[in-house]
């Protein structure tokens, strides 16, 4: 193991890629984000996320239960902001309504499941996906599976401490950050 040299990049990385945290990748501190496992200022990570999204062929948002369900005040606004961002990008939204291993199988056209997120990515030929509103444990589990078996670039917009297993990760991600990301996307698009 070569700690701190491990780069979290789009896969497919192989049969069973390691958790980035076990390879020396540390979570960002407040005001920071991660790009490919390296800690950078949050603004840079946000800019990089916007760039990857704008350049993607099939950008897709995976909203999880914490934003899909209108369970507390403030969620509806965040959901709307996410919808607006997706519309700006012309991106798909494929929901992750819950985390159960689903029987007999999911319909990858319309949903994603953390136990086999790769099915949805393969089916929809997703090249950049965004996790938001997913409980951290399930997000990390899914991010590793995606890195292992697909060539999809992962972006995690986390309301808590962030995700080492995403190619790009932001932490403490709030409504204002969602607006900032939309603004960045619009700026990049305007630039062409």
């Amino acid at each position: 193991m070569e700690p701190h040299r491990y780069k979290v990049v789009s896969g497919p990385e192989g049969f069973l890629p390691p958790a980035a945290a076990s390879m020396g990748v540390a979570l960002p501190e407040q005001g920071e984000g991660l790009i490919e496992g390296a800690r950078v200022p949050a603004a840079s990570a946000l800019e990089e996320a916007a760039t990857r999204l704008v350049n993607a062929k099939h950008p897709t948002f995976f909203p999880g239960p914490l934003i899909l369900w209108n369970w507390k005040d403030g969620i509806a606004e965040k959901a709307q902001a996410l919808k607006d961002l997706a519309d700006t990008l012309g991106a798909k939204i494929i929901p992750m309504p819950d985390y159960r291993p689903k029987y007999p199988m999911i319909n990858p056209e319309i949903e994603v499941n953390p136990n086999h997120p790769n099915l949805t990515i393969w089916h929809n030929k997703i090249d950049v996906c965004v996790f938001i509103g997913v409980h951290c444990h399930y997000a990390n589990m899914a991010l590793k599976i995606i890195r292992g078996g697909t060539d999809c670039c992962t972006i995690a917009l986390c309301a808590e401490a962030g995700h080492e297993d995403a190619v790009i990760s932001l932490r403490d991600f709030a409504l204002a950050d969602l607006h900032a990301l939309t603004a960045a996307v619009n700026r990049l698009k305007a630039r062409g």
Binding site: S22, P101, H137, N140, M141, K144, I145, G148, D165
Partner: peptide, 19 residues
């Protein structure tokens, strides 16, 4: 019954180690 369940379990274990 899910062919990919092994990867899910493996990834789950890795997440504990990561934590």
């Amino acid at each position: 019954s899910n062919f990919i369940s092994y990867a899910a379990h493996a990834s789950w274990q890795q997440e504990i180690e990561a934590a």
